[in-house]
Design a protein around this nucleic acid. Structure first.
Lengths: 221, 221
DNA sequence: ACTATGTCATAGCAATGTTATGGATTACGA
DNA sequence: TCGTAATCCATAACATTGCTATGACATAGT
């Protein structure tokens, strides 16, 4: 029952946004009564919290699905692509995950858990010697910077202040600036980017195959 | 009456968040009836739209208050500081501006209007020859990248996924990466940063003087 | 067999956004 | 100065929201 409620709630949020998720609406959708939600969650806010958690779980699964190869920089680019595709293919769910607050320590924990996938990918780049000028900086600090850039671009796109084409363009150019500043070689970086592009089709976003090109349409207002 | 309603609504949103702004609550706050809101705005969503617009107006005023000196790079750093301070000193209003949707073309216009202050500052840096490696890139594209970084860090801080100290640290280091990649000289960049730090006290955020240091506390959950 | 516990259906409550109606005030032209 | 139109807002009602009280039913444990 709990699982059915959470999945139905996530589906409603995904299709109609936060405002569409209503107590009686959800109860009717799964064919039960309003009390069922309260015996399992205690409040509507706790239900929303579980929807957020499911969103982070999906995002984490999509990031965990990118394979680790001998080119960690290409792997990192694919992590970024998986993050961007996960966020933009389900805008309402991403909005719920980050902008629906209030957030408590539990939410922060699940958020930082999925961030660890990016830290791991960045760490492999540092160990491979691709970022010599980064010095002794913690890989988590480097990962945080590309996370902030990605999250910022995604947020601006979801606010309709940025077209998808611009978002992916600046995601690539902005990340390139960071990597060059951290000392990666421009030619090696270009090769890694090409390898990442060639591997785009192996991405799986929410158990569906990712589009072979990073540019696509489909945006709910 | 319209102005009083908008100001009271913005104050309620600032102090208690979006959920605190209620029809009857606002009517009681300004000593009128619920119908007053409907004759002036027509719907609660239109009222919220005007609150967002006021938020962007305040942000724009704070950015416009930054003086233009002979060091455009320092001016740009101050623009970034003004943006960060405006956002974090009124988290609920910033959340309302970007994350409260739905957004229509009018909202997009007001958002891009305030963005133009950053584009202007970036344009002055390009004209001064501080970013030679940026080539023929449109200053708006460069400004967009630092905007995305700033907005991303602010958003992560407002989601409690980032402490304020981390946010300002990565705001500086991330922007430094971008400027270095665009060809600014590390020593000139350092001097501009020092000049910007020395001018922090001249910032005015919402008609109050900014703190002399970029690091401060005060965060509503 | 009897209790205990977890689960959900029914019904109701306060609060929400919205609308209908009408009274009060003001604007303005004859 | 009067009459008419329009603007603004107070009162009251409506449907819908999240939430709670109460009790029926089923399953499990001793």
């Amino acid at each position: 029952m709990r699982e059915a409620l959470i999945e139905a709630a996530a589906r409603i949020v995904a299709t109609e946004g936060r405002a569409g998720l209503t107590l009686r609406r959800l109860a009717g959708e799964v064919g039960t009564s309003t009390m069922a939600i309260y015996t399992h969650f205690g409040s509507m806010e706790e239900l929303r919290r579980n929807v957020r958690r499911q969103g982070f779980a999906r995002l984490g699964a999509n990031l965990a699905a990118v394979e680790e190869t001998r080119d960690p920089m290409a792997d990192l680019a694919l992590l970024g692509a998986a993050y961007y595709l996960s966020a933009t293919s389900d805008p309402n769910l991403y909005r719920a995950m980050f902008f629906d607050g209030p957030v408590d320590e539990e939410d922060v924990g699940t958020g930082l858990d999925t961030f660890m996938y990016l830290v791991e990918g960045m760490s492999r780049c540092v160990e491979a010697g691709r970022l010599p000028k980064a010095g002794t900086a913690d890989p988590a600090e480097l990962a945080l910077e590309v996370w902030a850039l990605t999250h910022g671009l995604v947020s601006l796109q979801l606010a309709h202040l940025l077209a998808p084409a611009q978002a992916v363009e600046h995601l690539q150019s902005g990340a390139r600036c960071l990597f060059l500043a951290w000392g990666d070689d421009p030619r090696r970086l270009k090769r890694s980017r090409q390898r990442a592009m060639a591997r785009l089709a192996e991405l799986s976003i929410d158990d569906r195959q990712a589009p072979s090109a990073l540019l696509f349409s489909s945006q709910t207002p």
